[in-house]
């Protein structure tokens, strides 16, 4: 296998919560990301899925240096981007770009679309003349399905779906190597979500940009990803090719997620899996395997010892003590 575009090894991002009142006790460290490793090949889409508070967004924010990492490394073509100084990292920012969830918050309301899209070109010195910049902006707006004539307008004149298209244009205008998309369609209506997902997929195919696609929605992740990583409380519990993970989910948490997702099928009513308990907080993770209080297959060992990540096949792996003892995945109804 060729060297991956991005290799993340044992990444940890811990937050030190402040005192809640002067001279009060320090709150415990919140281990939002606690030992995450994965690789993204050039041109590949890795879907990172998990529930709120599992640390999936923090992974994305750490890789774009919006949060400082605690330890671990993230090698972009062999170069550790977490160790670079801010000045040394700046030229790389154009190569690692981020799409955020809320297109109402991520676009500057005072700038026209042209100004919004010209800014990255200027900062990364990709256009020398205003004419050249404008031509590039028109080209990118066409790519995301907007009329180039709209570049004189302001964000409030656009709907949510159109704003997300503009956010995508702002990212793609830099021809990045890696795009981190953090819940890019979660704020959109169902009918618009499909349009934007199709657009992201089409642009990804055309430009073969690598992508870390962060989402809580299994259907969305299945649609967009080549490979999937499932996160629970700061750790990756299962990774594998999309087809493998969805057809033969190995980790009990992946199975629970799949079974809990409602399907548009009235015949399924009342046949949903019963989840035990609620997600624990990353501020006070349970000992041993952090999923054990909710796991129907938990044994004594799970309460004491955190499971190591073990390969099931070439590129499908899972962090569970009882993988061998788990019942086989029933045929998907």
């Amino acid at each position: 296998m060729t060297a991956p575009l991005l290799a993340v090894r044992n990444l940890k991002t811990h937050f030190r919560a402040g005192r809640s009142w002067p001279f009060g006790p320090r709150a415990a460290t919140l281990k939002a990301v606690d030992g995450v490793s994965f690789e993204i090949q050039a041109g590949e889409v890795l879907g990172l899925v998990g529930e709120s508070g599992c640390g999936k967004s923090t992974v994305g924010r750490t890789l774009t240096r919006l949060e400082p990492s605690t330890s671990g490394e993230a090698l972009l073509e062999g170069q550790d981007i977490l160790q670079l100084s801010q000045a040394a990292f700046r030229p790389l920012r154009g190569q690692i770009q981020m799409i955020f969830q809320d297109p109402f918050a991520s676009l500057n309301p005072r700038l026209t679309i042209e100004q919004t899209l010209a800014e990255p070109l200027r900062i990364h010195r990709l256009a020398t003349t205003a004419k050249e910049a404008r031509a590039r902006i028109a080209e990118i707006l066409t790519l995301v399905g907007l009329d180039p004539k709209v570049m004189t307008r302001h964000p409030h004149q656009f709907s949510g779906g159109q704003r997300q298209r503009i956010a995508i244009a702002r990212v793609m205008i830099l021809s990045p190597r890696l795009v981190i998309a953090d819940e890019p369609v979660s704020a959109l209506d169902v009918s618009i979500q499909a349009q934007v997902l199709n657009l992201i997929k089409e642009i990804q195919r055309k430009s073969s940009v690598a992508m870390l696609f962060i989402s809580h929605d299994l259907g969305v992740v299945r649609h967009i990803s080549d490979r999937v990583a499932v996160m629970y409380l700061g750790r990756i519990v299962e990774t594998g090719p999309k087809a493998e993970v969805f057809a033969r989910p190995s980790h009990p948490y992946t199975r629970l997620l799949l079974e809990s997702t409602p399907r548009p099928d009235p015949a399924r009513a009342g046949r949903r899996a019963k989840a035990l308990g609620e997600p624990a907080s990353a501020a006070a993770p349970p000992p041993g395997c952090s999923f054990h209080p909710r796991c129907p297959f938990a044994t004594e060992r799970c309460r004491i010892e955190a499971p190591a990540y073990a390969a099931l096949s070439d590129n499908h792996g899972s962090a569970c003590h009882n993988i061998a003892a788990l019942p086989g995945k029933q045929a998907n109804e």
Binding site: S159, L197, L218
Partner: peptide, 25 residues
């Protein structure tokens, strides 16, 4: 259209059959 545009967690498809246009104000 709404039913078709939901990404399916149980099957793959290349392009989602999206509803064109946008939600009216």
């Amino acid at each position: 259209g709404l039913m078709a545009s939901i990404p399916d967690a149980d099957a793959d498809c290349e392009t989602l059959p999206a509803i064109a246009g946008r939600v009216p104000r």
